[in-house]
Design a binder for these strands. Structure first.
Lengths: 100, 100
DNA sequence: TAAAAATACTCCATAGGTATTTTAT
DNA sequence: ATAAAATACCTATGGAGTATTTTTA
């Protein structure tokens, strides 16, 4: 699994639109659709409902939104922590982190 | 970031050998080396020390090992949770999960 | 010198893009 | 009829492999 999929999903979950999410992410709508489909296949569950004109989160999508946020935040923290430990070893204080 | 990188890292951290890890993962030693390098570049820190003949975890590697395990476990749980919610909606009880 | 990790390259798989079609209102 | 998502198909990037070189004891 790729963190990109979680990022794309969170963007759609926030915008409630594949097209808007794509613009925000500076990628094509196709790329977003493909990654969301891959993620849904992986989890084995529909995360977004595309019927009724408006895109909506499914119940599973709602819980997965919260969890995805936490997961990415945790990952970010873990990276920062590893850097901090590494830098702490030779006396240099820790720096800031960025999620790739 | 890809979860494959965490899985490869955990395998090397456990075996303390790129070659052994590669065998265990049924991939080439090259693939393991490349993914570990990519991960180290991403985190911005050396996770494994290859000097002194024996492969060892760096201090950063040690903390990242624990965190990687937790991260993958959390991801697995989140997938299972999403499935459970989805299946709970129409009354069918939740099934088991597997991490891709 | 031997055993293991790193490189150089090549090949294939997967992510991303454009153009188009389908779907829901 | 229209706006948005899905699909078909093509291209580009990144992952994996084989062969080889470097490194450390």
């Amino acid at each position: 699994m790729n963190t990109r999929q979680l990022e794309y999903f969170l963007a759609v979950a926030e915008e409630l639109s594949f097209t808007k999410a794509a613009e925000k992410l500076y990628v094509s709508q196709t790329a977003v659709t493909q990654q969301i489909q891959a993620l849904e296949d992986l989890v084995g569950v529909k995360l977004l409902s595309r019927t009724k004109k408006k895109v909506e989160l499914t119940p599973a999508g709602r819980v997965f939104q919260t969890e995805s946020r936490q997961l990415l935040e945790q990952l970010n923290n873990d990276f920062a922590h590893a850097r901090a430990v590494s830098e702490g070893v030779n006396g240099i204080p820790p720096a800031e982190s960025s999620l790739p």
